Amino acid sequence: MKLKTLLVLLSLAASGVALSTELYRWTDDGGRVYYGARADVPQRYASRAVPASTPLPPGTTVCEARWHQYAASAACFDQYRLVGGGLKPEAFQRCTEVPQPDCN
């Protein structure tokens, strides 16, 4: 079972999310994970920030990996949101749409 989980995690990491600006992943003091551009990382968490494409820690479940991929996709699209709503057309050229996972 562990080998299957590892293979799924590796395939998710290899597929990645197409990013226009390199996104970063960081964890706050409460353990919540965030994604955003380097400029979005609060100064106090800068030392914890890693590129979003960095492999997830060992022990990450398949479901958790899917949620991370979804969050990275959403952060990519956030860069192209318009003030009045909607997205700039290039968002769909530079970001990969990832559906919300159906696992918890």
Rank of each mutant, 00 (worst) to 15 (best):
K88I: 07
G59T: 05
A71R: 04
R94T: 14
Y34Q: 03
G85L: 10
Y35E: 01
A39E: 14
A46R: 13
L7R: 12
P57M: 06
W26E: 01
V33A: 02
P51M: 08
Q100F: 08
G31Q: 05
Q43V: 09
L10V: 07
G84K: 10
V8E: 00
S11A: 13
S53V: 10
A13W: 15
G30I: 00
D29L: 11
Q43L: 08
P42Q: 08
S11H: 03
A91S: 13
L10K: 10
K4M: 09
D28A: 07
K4D: 11
L10S: 05
A39C: 06
A75R: 00
G84W: 06
Y34V: 01
Q100I: 10
G84F: 09
A49M: 09
G84Y: 06
T61V: 05
P42Y: 08
V17R: 00
A75L: 00
A37L: 09
R81L: 10
D102K: 11
C95M: 12
L56F: 03
C63Y: 03
T60E: 06
G85H: 10
L7W: 05
C63T: 05
G30P: 00
V83N: 02
P89E: 14
R44I: 07
P99E: 14
Q100G: 02
V17D: 01
L10F: 09
A91E: 11
P55I: 09
L82K: 13
R32W: 04
Q43E: 13
D28I: 05
F77C: 04
Y45T: 02
P55Y: 08
G36N: 08
L19F: 07
